[in-house]
Amino acid sequence: MESLVEMDERYNPYTGKRLVPGIDDVTPRAASMGLEPPRFCEHCGRRMIVQVSPDGWWAKCSRHGVIDSSLREQQR
């Protein structure tokens, strides 16, 4: 069983580094402009399978499923 600390951990989807409250995490410029898809899962930090096409992208984590560019746009 996972502890609450592990369940609350978040990771930078562009670098894979664990996010620490109170410490700024740098997002690559291309990612902040919406030009780069996430490469790491925000929930577990694992590298994802990423497919980029002219009209968007999708990324798949083996544990947490698929996200795509249309879902990201809705979150903004």
Rank of each mutant, 00 (worst) to 15 (best):
residue 1 M to I: 09
residue 1 M to L: 07
residue 2 E to F: 13
residue 2 E to K: 05
residue 3 S to G: 03
residue 4 L to H: 02
residue 4 L to G: 08
residue 4 L to Y: 10
residue 6 E to W: 09
residue 7 M to I: 15
residue 7 M to E: 15
residue 7 M to T: 10
residue 8 D to W: 00
residue 9 E to T: 00
residue 10 R to L: 06
residue 11 Y to H: 10
residue 11 Y to W: 13
residue 11 Y to N: 05
residue 13 P to S: 10
residue 13 P to M: 12
residue 14 Y to Q: 04
residue 14 Y to P: 08
residue 14 Y to F: 15
residue 16 G to F: 14
residue 16 G to L: 12
residue 17 K to R: 14
residue 17 K to L: 15
residue 18 R to C: 03
residue 18 R to Q: 03
residue 20 V to K: 07
residue 20 V to H: 02
residue 20 V to M: 06
residue 20 V to E: 14
residue 21 P to T: 04
residue 21 P to I: 09
residue 22 G to E: 04
residue 23 I to T: 09
residue 24 D to P: 06
residue 25 D to V: 00
residue 27 T to F: 08
residue 27 T to C: 01
residue 31 A to W: 08
residue 31 A to R: 11
residue 31 A to H: 11
residue 32 S to T: 08
residue 36 E to Y: 11
residue 37 P to T: 10
residue 37 P to R: 09
residue 38 P to T: 01
residue 38 P to D: 00
residue 38 P to E: 05
residue 39 R to A: 07
residue 40 F to S: 01
residue 40 F to N: 01
residue 40 F to Q: 07
residue 42 E to Q: 12
residue 42 E to N: 02
residue 42 E to P: 03
residue 43 H to T: 04
residue 43 H to L: 06
residue 44 C to A: 00
residue 44 C to L: 09
residue 45 G to L: 08
residue 46 R to D: 03
residue 46 R to A: 06
residue 46 R to I: 02
residue 47 R to W: 02
residue 47 R to L: 08
residue 47 R to I: 03
residue 47 R to V: 00
residue 48 M to A: 07
residue 49 I to H: 07
residue 50 V to P: 02
residue 51 Q to D: 09
residue 52 V to T: 11
residue 53 S to V: 01
residue 57 W to D: 04
residue 57 W to M: 08
residue 59 A to T: 12
residue 59 A to S: 14
residue 59 A to R: 08
residue 60 K to E: 11
residue 62 S to H: 10
residue 62 S to Q: 11
residue 65 G to E: 05
residue 65 G to I: 02
residue 66 V to C: 08
residue 69 S to T: 13
residue 69 S to C: 13
residue 69 S to H: 14
residue 69 S to I: 12
residue 69 S to Q: 13
residue 70 S to I: 03
residue 71 L to R: 14
residue 71 L to F: 14
residue 71 L to D: 14
residue 72 R to Y: 05
residue 74 Q to E: 11
residue 75 Q to E: 15
residue 75 Q to A: 15
residue 75 Q to S: 13
residue 76 R to P: 00
residue 76 R to F: 13
residue 76 R to K: 13
